[in-house]
């Protein structure tokens, strides 16, 4: 799924690059603050592992083979910020050393395969794992996360190609998602086998001592909501909903305005008007606004409890997030 140069328009490449740059910068800052930055060797050698693992081919059929991509797997093994840094490093080196993926489209590739893949993979893995998962559940969660991450990255890629005018969304999206839904099965299987093997050999590498589970779930949920707004908002139908349609059929007309000034009236952004970009940005703003309001409401309503200090648990060399 490495997009070569010549496909994306300058605007789409720049926009994707900006989002990717901000995401990776945030991940780097987060890695430093969680202390994983002092374990640079782990990040670097893990990136080398992902690079090397991508060279291992698994036979599929009729002379074809597949290979691991590893975004969701890396997120499950190292945590989200470290996984984003590792995958971004792999993609940049693949571009600069092997020409795998374009120079101008590097930002888009990082957005698809480092940010979207890792966020979706991590969120699905965290949500599916729950607290203290059994080995079977752990393996199933990372497998499902791998599949979801592959499909999400394909959707993001399809949108970028459609926004660049290379092909219509209703053609490129089913093509990309259809193919990658199958490729995602391979990713799921390889991830499951790998995690199963690690669970047998060194299970402590997959436990995270002291993880705040509720924060992990909240972050995962917010991440999924933002990715959904980013990827799914462009597909929103412009057709009227059921109520407006019935009203139109009966000859009734909605009033011109409700009298309240809405900043994002009709899901448009002042200055950007209508269009895919405005819809996506409004979706993202809406998701953040609602999350913020719910968080505030929870802070006001839910009484705080003092929890006893958690007992010490064996720590893994991979730092908790």
């Amino acid at each position: 799924m490495h997009i070569p140069d010549g496909f994306l328009s300058a605007r789409v490449a720049a926009g994707s690059g900006l989002i990717a740059g901000l995401g990776v910068a945030f991940a780097c800052a987060r890695v430093r603050t969680t202390g994983l930055g002092s374990r640079r060797a782990l990040l670097g050698v893990s990136a080398a592992f992902v690079f090397a693992a991508q060279l291992v081919n698994f036979p599929v059929a009729a002379g074809t083979s597949g290979h691991l991509v590893g975004a969701a797997l890396t997120a499950a093994l190292l945590g989200l910020p470290a996984a984003i840094v590792v995958m971004a490093a792999v993609l940049i080196v693949q571009c600069l050393a092997f020409g795998d993926g374009g120079l101008l489209s590097l930002g888009a590739n990082v957005l698809n395969m480092a940010l979207v893949s890792c966020v979706v993979g991590y969120a699905v893995d965290r949500l599916a794992c729950g607290k203290n998962p059994s080995p079977t559940r752990r393996v199933a969660a990372v497998a499902f996360a791998g599949w979801c991450a592959t499909v999400a990255a394909a959707m993001s890629c399809a949108e970028q190609l459609a926004l660049s005018g290379v092909a219509r969304l209703r053609i490129v999206l089913p093509a990309m998602v259809g193919v990658h839904a199958l490729i995602g099965l391979g990713e799921a299987m390889i991830s499951a086998l790998l995690v199963g093997s690690v669970l047998r050999l060194r299970p402590e590498l997959l436990t995270r001592s002291g993880v705040n589970h509720s924060r992990s779930v909240l972050g995962s949920g917010l991440g999924l909501a933002l990715v959904a707004a980013l990827l799914l908002a462009p597909f929103s139908s412009a057709a009227p909903d059921g109520l407006l349609r019935v009203a139109a059929q009966l000859g009734a007309h909605a009033p011109a305005s409700s009298g309240i000034h809405a900043p994002f009236a009709e899901y448009t952004l002042p200055g950007l008007g209508t269009g895919v970009l405005a819809t996506v940005l409004v979706g993202v703003c809406g998701a953040l606004l609602i999350f913020g309001l719910c968080w505030l409401f929870a802070l006001l309503v839910v009484p705080r409890r003092r929890t006893p200090a958690a007992p010490e648990r064996a720590s893994s060399p991979i730092a908790a997030e």
């Binding site: 050698v45 893990s46 080398a48 390889i190 499951a192 086998l193 093997s197 690690v198 991979i318």
Partner: peptide, 25 residues
């Protein structure tokens, strides 16, 4: 069998990767 063997090999490679990272650090 091939998939299982290669998946196990990758898992072992990851475990060795973490050990190598500790030595490098």
């Amino acid at each position: 069998e091939l998939w299982r063997a290669q998946g196990n090999a990758l898992g072992l490679l990851f475990v060795r990767t973490v050990s190598r990272a500790e030595r490098v650090q």
